[in-house]
Design a protein around this nucleic acid. Sequence first.
DNA 1: TTACGCCCTGTACCATAGTACGAAGTCAAG
DNA 2: CTTGACTTCGTACTATGGTACAGGGCGTAA
Lengths: 136, 136
Amino acid sequence: MTSLTTGQLAKRANVNVETIRYYERRGIIPEPPRRESGYRQYPDDAVARIQFVKRAQELGFTLKEIQELLNLRVDPETPCAVVKNRTDLKIMDIEEKLRSLKRIKKALNQLAASCSGRGPVGDCPILQALGGDRTW
Amino acid sequence: MTSLTTGQLAKRANVNVETIRYYERRGIIPEPPRRESGYRQYPDDAVARIQFVKRAQELGFTLKEIQELLNLRVDPETPCAVVKNRTDLKIMDIEEKLRSLKRIKKALNQLAASCSGRGPVGDCPILQALGGDRTW
DNA sequence: TTACGCCCTGTACCATAGTACGAAGTCAAG
DNA sequence: CTTGACTTCGTACTATGGTACAGGGCGTAA
């Protein structure tokens, strides 16, 4: 069984060494055994754990949520429904963000359409719309 | 001409007093004149300036971007096109965020669909998909 | 005049997700 | 055995957008 140093783990998982230490402080990865010298000895599959975190992050989970997700695993009797439920909640969360961004985009498009791009900024309809039409 | 104290301005603009001081530190609102006592004296239209900031924030601009937007006003000869350009960039920015969120949502939906919600978490297809199918 | 509420300053703190750095110890190659 | 790369720890710093608080000064009404 090979074992990895922090640096090797970092390289394989494609993250910064400090990120690994940070995850350990956060309790997202367990403290690995140490050599006499104090060097950490990570098992091979620590790479998979880091990648779990990274994939979940890409899917919009925060580190806190990921930690909760990982904690569920500790008790294999936890019903799978709990995990599905978090996923569904996250989907709703993302739908809310999508709605909000679409609203924003619509408003910005209206501003952009109102502005020819010609003339001095003093007459800019975009700034006027944002600020009322006063000059401070 | 009425003039406002920090607290009055905060109340009218519907923000925290500390937020106003924070904006002043950031250079987002100019330092107002003071009374003998040191009390700030805001002109009435400071309310509009705060609201400009708040509206722009709602539209997805960061304080830094808002500051740049406000700085454009200082020289009324700045062409309006500059403002339009920033707006267009921000629209593209938001479109990018929308694409990203849609990708995430799709991936999460696939995960959620793969999971019946029944059975123990040890067999959960969601966690398996995130982590590879290993048990740490 | 005293009491209460506001205002002033500077600084520290919150969450989020890391990154950077110094000082010291360790490991491996030459 | 030395050198250079790597590891350890603790702490401080980054960016973002504020919030909180202590210790003092000010303002006004009763």
